[in-house]
């Protein structure tokens, strides 16, 4: 029995029950609760091969509109040059450009970045609209050298390393669910963030684990991801 429970904070992942069933150890991260690990001593090795992590409680937000890029740049966001690419910020948060007029901002794994909080508190400019991505989308991470091959079973976009470079973004269908896929490697380990409509969270989690089974993929905690990054 873990001493920290997801129900101790207001926001918990749609997968909280799945994590408890899997024997997860939770940890406080800023004012959130994330899965630290699942009790395995080899989770870092697992993440290097093929791992699945739930980052759904970590902060994220989006902005859309003709004024959004200039407004974000004014507030210190380093914008990617092209749509469907992402840029790592100085504070390790990640900004993905989904179109000429749409941004998605993801927290770093340690939740040390204050950029999302700052942007949420900043007065919004004309023709700029906030998108509550933390409420609308789940956030999973698929890690490991076998991740791209596993994705070929459930995603039509070629995510192999020589076709889909680090930092690239694909808005596509994953297991028939509309998803945003961002390649954001952890050190030398390939990592793909997958953001999908929150209502499909459990479906996607189960689909990914099912697709990962033949490669002996398994859930991993945030602790293993932090070790690799």
């Amino acid at each position: 029995m873990t001493s920290i429970r997801p129900s101790q904070v207001k926001r918990r992942s749609q997968l909280a029950r799945r994590h408890i069933e899997l024997g997860a150890e939770f940890e406080h991260c800023s004012n959130l609760i994330v899965v630290k690990d699942y009790g395995s001593q080899t989770e870092v090795d697992q993440a290097k091969k093929l791992g699945l992590a739930d980052l759904s409680t970590l902060p994220r937000i989006g902005f859309k509109g003709t004024g959004a890029p200039d407004w974000a740049a004014y507030h210190g966001v380093t914008l990617p040059q092209q749509p469907n690419t992402s840029a790592v910020q100085k504070d390790d948060s990640l900004v993905a450009k989904l179109s000429h007029q749409e941004l998605l901002i993801l927290s770093d794994l340690g939740v040390t970045s204050t950029q999302i909080e700052r942007l949420e508190d900043s007065p919004i400019a004309a023709q700029t609209y906030a998108l509550p991505r933390a409420d609308s989308h789940c956030w999973l991470a698929v890690t490991g050298n076998q991740a791209a091959e596993m994705f070929s079973k459930i995603c039509a976009v070629d995510l192999r390393a020589h076709k889909f470079a680090n930092g690239e973004v694909a808005q596509t269908s994953v297991a028939r669910a509309n998803s945003i896929v961002i390649r954001h490697d952890l050190g030398s380990t390939p990592c793909f963030y997958v953001l999908t409509d929150a209502s499909a969270t459990e479906f996607l989690w189960d689909c990914l684990l099912d697709a990962m089974a033949e490669y002996t993929g398994a859930p991993v905690g945030v602790s293993a991801l932090r070790t690799l990054s």
Binding site: P83, N84, S99, A156, V157, A170, Q171, T172, S173
Partner: peptide, 17 residues
Amino acid sequence: MKLLTCPLNGPRNIAEF
């Protein structure tokens, strides 16, 4: 497979449209 080229996302399966 039938493909359609999205000006933003490139060639994709028609099922995505």
